[in-house]
Nucleic acid binder design. Structure first.
Length: 846
RNA sequence: GCCAAGGUGGCGGAAUAGGCAGACGCGCAGGUCUCAAAAACCUGUGAAGCUAACACUUCGUGCGGGUUCGAUUCCCGCCCUUGGCACCA
């Protein structure tokens, strides 16, 4: 609600007066205006910075796009605008802002797009590149164009390969068998993200698992550090939490059980079970091995042949199933009893040893000790196979009867019973006590497990950097020597995914055949390419050093510009990209290649732009391409509209009507400045000075909190205020242009120039507000009765402090004299009075 | 199931060291201008009640409690939406 007078009739130019001004002065043509300033900026290098000499370097990074879709997505533009506004704000705050851009055009996304449109990925890459850079040049970002990088460029992926070799030399790259997602219909390996609910994203057929030899990066070696360092970086909390969950640290104990025969005779073998809940071990009644467990092989001599055949048949059938199927929660438990037992040292009890596919080899130790009374899964298993159930915990409900239904299964909390020396203890305390006890006895060993698994690097695809390794029969795996980098991706016609679990490169004999770098004998190249995420996990290091041909990154420039000061990007990369980048940076640090452990000092996640309440997607056909809006309204309107939708972290729903409203606002700003600049005053009135300072403060507050929507709203209020003034000071209008600059860079430049400003508005410093001006002489106090607002009263600032009793009494007298207060107080007694400095007086009556 | 974020007019949203709920905008309605329309501009716009009018009163921030002089904001218990993780031992 505006408190300023609304009848501004005499303050505004009449229509006649307006018409007397020449038409051209009032025609707002954003397209012409924007293209004019684009070329001026380019010509004068307004947005270029000298990376070597910049005084106060500030690395403002945004996630580079996958140029795989039909063009820049309005969601990309949302993210880039949000980041650019921040960069421009920092620039006006006096920093030399480096704002690079590039394309993450290597990898499966781009290859799939090429498959879809039926073009060779290399050909499509050039088309996408031209289109993306064209669009990116129109959105008003202060990109450092000279530094742009594309991951599919040999000058870039040469260093991606070099990084692979550094990982190999550091012992952090290794080969192992791994299950991969296999689509039998497309005859290809799929990335995890291409598997939707166990089915192929493209043809919907059921995905199978296949075992293949693959390259891995040992990210698990860094699990603890990736977790610990989270406390050192300023990131959106939700992203930190997502990473923490993904790393999934679990502290527990490996308990070793002796395997015995039916009659109790030990066979000389053991089974190790990892558990985080050893407190319930007095209630353990069975042990389950994963079907893939290597322990099974060792136990074979002690398992009866007719049982062994059942075990192997079971293991074979579970192998056919995809991981998704196996862990489907609702599925009924299955399993085979081995005929063997594990001895529970605590109770002396023989626990039957089973094999079941609900136990996953890669989790914990691949073996589980079953406590059916206090674990729902174990309960289901025990119920199915009629195994003993013992209660060892009593929960808050006090139920201490035998456990016969799943609702009685007490998992999270309670007090120990039937557990010898643990009885009466809270489960948390019991866990500690029993852990120490088991370790002391030599029955168990405290361990930490992580959910995080090693990073699978290999892709049996074409469109990626060939993994720079050579396999020699005599010397084993050898890295390609530096002088032979890059290993160029051969241009082949038959680049489509093959059916045999190998990359299409395997069919290119001229590529595969090579010599061993060590013994010079004949050898074969690795034919897999590396994961897209490897390309994108170091691109920020390349940006400043793009000009360097001899190193991946220049030491001096890297010292100067990194780590990244502000990174804005999508929350969908919370775990993969952001974790891999952190991992690699830590490795580089350990190898002495960089001087910092964390790549991104500050990270903020932006929200998602949706359309009509739904996610934009190709299949729904509701993707908004910014082109048509850029063409119709220009970049400034689109930028401001997107930012006005809500806080940057929230995203928003794209609509055409809102777009139009923002266009109208910018048009009003334009006319206002042209009109008011005619009779600009030098003198700034007190009222103006106050509003100017307040606006600077508020707009800046919105910028700092990435709530650009509020900054724009304050600018609108400011414009509404200026509109109502008969005469406006030059300072008011200059301030408007400067404050508008981060949001609508083209229009702001135009206005700045019109006002006679020199050089670029974007090189101006962000204005300072004057706190003294913001202190008012009169302050409005709210008058409440029983907490309900009844009136308001203006008092002098000194009195509004309400510090002394004398001041309080003086204000109270004024308040009591108010007619409305009198009415409400009639016949009532004031029981208490609440004074809040500069805010209010509340009278509490009976 | 677990973790996280959120629920405020017709719509997007604003306001949280507890203190004017609905800033700003969209939409809608009425008006000015026009032969007419568009554009532009002006006025109004949470609901209900009461007024000739100005005004005033009551209700109102997902639901139910609580703390407080005072709660959109803090606490407890629910419901719903969105995102992430999930037979994780």
């Amino acid at each position: 609600m505006s408190k300023t007078k609304k009848d501004g009739s005499d303050n505004n130019l009449s229509l006649k007066q307006k018409r007397s001004l020449s038409d051209s002065e009032f025609s707002f043509n954003p397209l012409q205006l924007e293209s004019k300033w684009r070329s001026v900026w380019e010509k004068e290098g307004t947005n270029q910075i000298d990376l070597d000499s910049a005084a106060r370097p500030y690395f403002n990074l945004m996630m580079f796009p996958y140029p795989s879709a039909e063009g820049l997505h309005v969601g990309n533009m949302y993210a880039f605008t949000g980041s650019d506004i921040w960069g421009r704000f920092m620039r006006m705050k006096g920093f030399s802002v480096f704002e690079p851009i590039g394309l993450d055009g290597f990898g499966i996304h781009s290859e799939n797009y090429a498959l879809k449109v039926g073009k060779h990925p290399a050909v499509q890459a050039k088309i996408s590149e031209a289109n993306f850079y064209r669009q990116l040049s129109l959105i008003g970002n202060q990109f450092s164009w000279d530094q742009k990088v594309e991951t599919y460029n040999p000058a870039y992926y040469r260093w991606t390969q070099w990084i692979f070799i550094q990982m190999f030399k550091a012992g952090l790259a290794y080969r192992d068998k791994a299950a991969v997602n296999w689509c039998p219909s497309c005859k290809t390996v799929l990335a995890d993200e291409q598997v939707i609910d166990g089915a192929c994203e493209r043809c919907d057929s059921q995905v199978e698992e296949r075992e293949l030899e693959q390259w891995f990066f040992k990210i698990t070696d860094y699990a603890q550090r990736l977790l610990t360092n989270l406390s050192k970086i300023d990131w959106s909390p939700k992203v930190k939490i997502a990473q923490k969950n993904w790393i999934g640290k679990k502290e527990g104990i490996d308990i070793t059980y002796e395997v015995v025969l039916e009659e109790g005779k030990p066979v000389g073998k053991t089974v190790v079970c990892f558990t985080t809940r050893p407190d319930t071990n007095f209630g353990a009644t069975f042990v389950v091995l994963s079907p893939e467990s290597s322990v099974l092989g060792k136990l074979k001599p002690f398992i009866k042949p007719e049982i062994w055949s059942k075990v192997t048949a079971y293991a074979a059938s579970s192998k056919k199933m995809s991981r998704e199927d196996r862990i489907d929660q609702g599925r009924e438990k299955t399993g085979v009893f081995t005929g063997l037992y594990c001895l529970n040292q605590l109770t002396g009890k023989k626990m039957p040893l089973w094999v079941s596919d609900f136990v996953l080899m890669e989790v914990g130790s691949g073996a589980v000790v079953g406590v059916p009374g206090h674990d729902l899964r174990d309960f289901e298993f025990a119920s199915k196979f009629d195994l003993e159930i013992i209660r060892v915990v009593v929960g808050a409900d006090g139920d201490n009867s035998p456990i016969t239904t799943s609702s009685q299964v007490q998992e999270e909390e309670g007090v120990m019973v039937n557990s010898d020396f643990l009885n009466g203890m809270d489960i948390k305390k019991a866990t500690k006590v029993i852990m120490d006890y088991l370790e002391e006895k030599g029955w168990g060993k405290k361990v930490v497990h992580y959910r995080l698994r090693d990073w699978l690097i290999s892709r049996q695809r074409y469109w990626g950097p060939p993994i720079p390794m050579i396999n020699c029969k005599k010397c084993g795996w050898q890295p390609v020597p530096d002088k032979d980098l890059p290993v160029l991706l051969p241009e082949v016609e038959d680049w489509k995914p093959k059916g045999e679990g190998v990359s299409p490169l395997a069919a290119v004999e001229s590529f595969v055949k090579t010599t061993c770098p060590k013994c010079k004998g004949s050898a074969r190249r690795e034919t897999d390419v590396s994961d897209t995420f490897l390309d994108s996990s170091w691109y920020f290091l390349r940006y400043p050093s793009k000009g360097r041909k001899d190193v991946a990154w220049d030491k001096k420039l890297t010292e100067k510009w990194l780590p990244v000061d502000m990174y804005i990007g999508g929350a969908e990369h919370s775990v993969l990209h952001l974790l891999y980048s952190r991992f690699l940076t830590m490795v580089f640090y350990d190898l002495g290649l960089v001087s910092f452990e964390e790549p991104f000092t500050k990270f903020r996640a932006h929200g998602l732009i949706i359309k009509d309440g739904a996610k934009m997607s190709k299949s729904k056909g509701n993707i908004v391409n910014p082109d048509e809006y850029l063409k119709k309204y220009g970049a400034d309107s689109l930028r401001c509209y997107l930012m006005f939708l809500g806080p940057l972290s929230a995203g928003g729903d794209f609509s055409d009507t809102g777009m139009r409203g923002m266009f109208k606002f910018l048009k009003r700003v334009y006319s206002l400045v042209l009109e008011k600049s005619r009779g600009m005053t030098e003198k700034v009135t007190d009222k103006e000075a106050y509003i100017i300072s307040k606006t600077i403060k508020d707009v800046e507050g919105g910028l700092r909190r990435l709530k650009y929507n509020t900054s724009i709203a304050f600018l609108m209020e400011y414009v509404n205020f200026l509109k109502e003034q008969k005469a406006v000071s030059s300072q008011s209008l200059h301030t408007l242009a400067v404050l508008l600059a981060p949001f609508a860079p083209h229009l702001a430049e135009e206005l700045w120039q019109h006002l006679g400003g020199n050089h670029s508005v974007h090189s101006q410093s962000w204005p300072k507000f004057d706190p003294k001006v913001l202190k008012q002489e009169q302050i409005e106090l709210l008058v409440q009765i029983n907490g309900k607002l009844r009136d308001r009263i203006w008092v002098s600032a000194s009195l509004a402090g309400l510090k002394t009793e004398a001041e309080q009494k003086q204000v109270l007298d004024l308040v009591k004299a108010l007619p409305k207060v009198k009415t409400h107080l009639q016949g009532k007694e004031i029981k208490k009075t609440v004074f809040v400095k500069d805010r209010l007086v509340n009278l509490v009556v009976a």
